[in-house]
Amino acid sequence: MGEIVDEIGRVHRKVGTRRVASESAGTVLLRRTFDAGAAEVWSAVTSPERIARWFLPVTGEFRVGGSYQLEGNAGGEILECVPEERLRVSWLFGPDPGFSEVEVRLTPRDGSTVFELEHVSVVPEEFRSQYGPGAVGIGWDLALLGLGWHLAGDGLSPEEAVEWQSSPEARAFVTRSGEEWGRAFAATGADPETVTATTVATVAFYTGE
């Protein structure tokens, strides 16, 4: 497994907004290059058996128009699927989730694959103002960390993953991730005090401190 600083530095992060119908949705974008071909990365992010090894167990009807459910997490509908290129799903969690979609895009490049994940969601203003984009971004950083380990053949067993989540290394990763999402938030022109407050609150939420 790579050093935490190296893993954090492999991801480009961007925060933005988008109009969805008459509402303003927040967006977080993560971009990382994996040393694997597009077919291998596509298999890792679409095969239920492999998803369970780096993310969470998943059930459903794996076709466009079908539904899926991640164990203890989000579920939704498979909206678009272009093999080895693009996957778009609704991403619904809780009793009243509102609009939320995730799109994964793959671009082959010299034997490696540029992986992009964009999450677009409409969230209550009180939640956004308290936690900022890092509330979504840190979770996806953790997911990409697991995917990277899986593709490198260095993944964790479910028992090891649970143990790792409470380790000093995991807390360091979450803290650095939160700081990077704070920088991405600041790049949008957000108020510095808001950036600091939301970063602290989100890191504390993920670390339990």
Rank of each mutant, 00 (worst) to 15 (best):
A161Q: 14
V136S: 14
E160R: 12
R63A: 14
E61N: 10
Q69M: 13
T194G: 04
T113P: 11
A135S: 15
A143E: 06
P83H: 07
A161V: 03
V120E: 11
R53I: 01
T17Q: 14
F205A: 12
K14W: 02
F173P: 13
V122S: 08
S67I: 08
G139S: 05
Y131W: 09
R50N: 04
V122T: 14
E103R: 08
R13P: 06
E77S: 11
W42I: 12
R19P: 02
D141V: 02
L92K: 13
E126N: 09
I51V: 14
A197V: 10
L70A: 07
T33Y: 01
G139H: 07
S112T: 15
V41D: 11
L30Y: 00
R88E: 08
V104Y: 06
V89Y: 03
P192I: 03
A201Y: 02
V58K: 12
V5L: 05
E7D: 09
G111N: 09
P97Y: 01
R53V: 04
D191A: 01
S121M: 06
V162K: 14
I51A: 05
E101A: 04
V28H: 09
W140P: 09
Q130C: 06
H12R: 13
F185M: 11
P48D: 05
E116M: 03
T17V: 10
E118L: 11
T202H: 04
G94C: 06
T33I: 09
A170I: 07
D96T: 12
D154R: 15
L30T: 02
T27Q: 10
R19D: 07
P124R: 08
L29N: 05
A143F: 00
T107W: 07
R128Q: 14
V15K: 06
G111H: 10
S121N: 08
S67P: 10
V11Q: 05
A152V: 04
R50E: 15
A186E: 15
S166W: 11
E71T: 10
E159N: 00
L87M: 13
E180N: 15
K14Q: 14
A152N: 07
T27P: 06
R109Y: 07
R10G: 04
V89K: 09
V104F: 12
P168S: 14
V58Q: 08
V102T: 07
E49I: 03
T59V: 14
P168K: 14
V122Y: 06
R31W: 00
E160L: 01
D110A: 14
L79N: 12
A170P: 13
R31M: 01
A190K: 12
P95A: 11
G75S: 05
E3I: 00
E209A: 13
E3Y: 03
P192V: 04
R50L: 13
L79M: 11
V82G: 01
E125N: 04
E61T: 15
A36I: 08
V20M: 01
A36T: 13
T202C: 04
S67T: 15
S177F: 11
P108Q: 07
V15A: 03
F99K: 05
E77Y: 00
A190C: 10
G76W: 10
E125F: 00
A25R: 03
K14H: 10
S22P: 00
S100N: 15
I138Y: 02
E163T: 13
G132H: 06
W164S: 09
I8L: 15
A21N: 13
F34I: 10
